[in-house]
Amino acid sequence: MNFDRPALPAISTMILAAFLSTSLSGCVTGVVMAAASLDRARQERQAQRLSQPAPGEYAWATAPGVQVTGVFRLSTPKARPVPGGVQNGPREVLTCEGHRVRLIPDTPHSRFVLADNFELQVAPGGFWRNGFVALEWEWPSVSASVVRETRCTTDGAFTFDNVPDGEWLIMAEINPPSYDGGESVTDTVLRAVTIQGRSRPVHLDIQIGGKDDVNGVIQRF
């Protein structure tokens, strides 16, 4: 009895194709792993570099400045439970009244600290971190001397003295929204601001998520 057998060239072609496929797959995997390793190494080098301020990075923030006053308010829709989910209702205003507020020079090191220590990102409309995340509050000693800190008074008002012109970041603790059900002690908000006093006092009226959201939509995490 005779059986049909593939011709020898066909078998050779199949073996060669399998070998090339395996080799190519291994090469691609190796390239991907090497690229990921290089990216991790780059990120580690960048983190190590940014963990310390660069020479002179905060020099501008130590210059004489002006008094900065302001108010910090965040407007967000109230939510009430309905069958199958929740429904947004009238807006409520959250403030930093009675809580801590910081004015931080906007520099690469500051942004690294905010992301690495506090899980806060600088976003165009602001960044809102809920109180369920356990966050430290102490700023690293290597740059703490240039960070201003105070407490908000009635209706979210604050005052900082001797602030030079430049780009700054306001980091404030705020009361949590009512739909948290009292489970959060405080939330944290971060917002970029520009100080342009030109030797005159500055007032900042920081309204986030207003009635028409003209300041951009703030995202809560």
Rank of each mutant, 00 (worst) to 15 (best):
P140L: 04
L103V: 11
A192D: 03
Q196G: 08
F221V: 03
E119F: 10
P201Q: 14
P105K: 04
V82G: 10
V93N: 07
G181L: 07
E173Q: 13
R91Y: 00
R42W: 12
Y58A: 06
G156E: 00
V71E: 13
Q121H: 11
S75E: 02
A41L: 00
E167K: 15
Y179T: 01
S12P: 02
R49M: 12
G84Q: 13
I170K: 11
G125Q: 07
V31L: 09
H109S: 12
T107A: 01
F160Q: 04
E136K: 05
G216L: 04
G30S: 08
G131V: 02
N2L: 11
A7T: 15
A79H: 07
G98Q: 13
R200W: 13
L16N: 10
N130T: 14
I11C: 07
P140Q: 04
G209K: 02
A47T: 07
Q52L: 08
S23N: 10
P105E: 08
F132T: 03
P77C: 08
Q43I: 13
L190P: 15
Q52S: 03
K78F: 07
A157N: 08
V71Q: 13
D116A: 07
V146S: 02
G182V: 13
F112N: 07
G84W: 14
W128N: 02
A79E: 10
T13G: 14
M171C: 14
T29V: 09
E97P: 10
D205A: 15
I15P: 04
F221Q: 03
S178C: 11
L94V: 02
G30C: 08
V202T: 06
T29C: 04
C152I: 03
P105T: 08
V163N: 03
P83K: 08
I104K: 00
R42D: 10
V133M: 01
G125W: 09
R40T: 02
V217L: 09
P105I: 07
W60C: 07
S178L: 11
H203N: 13
A115H: 13
V31T: 04
V101D: 10
L8G: 06
W139K: 02
T62H: 11
F118I: 01
P108D: 14
L120F: 05
P77G: 14
E44P: 06
F132A: 09
T95M: 02
E92L: 13
V28C: 04
V214H: 04
I104Q: 02
S145A: 09
T95N: 03
V93L: 04
D39P: 00
T159Q: 05
P64D: 12
R100M: 06
S145M: 01
R73N: 10
E173A: 14
E119P: 00
A41D: 00
L120D: 05
Q48K: 15
S141F: 01
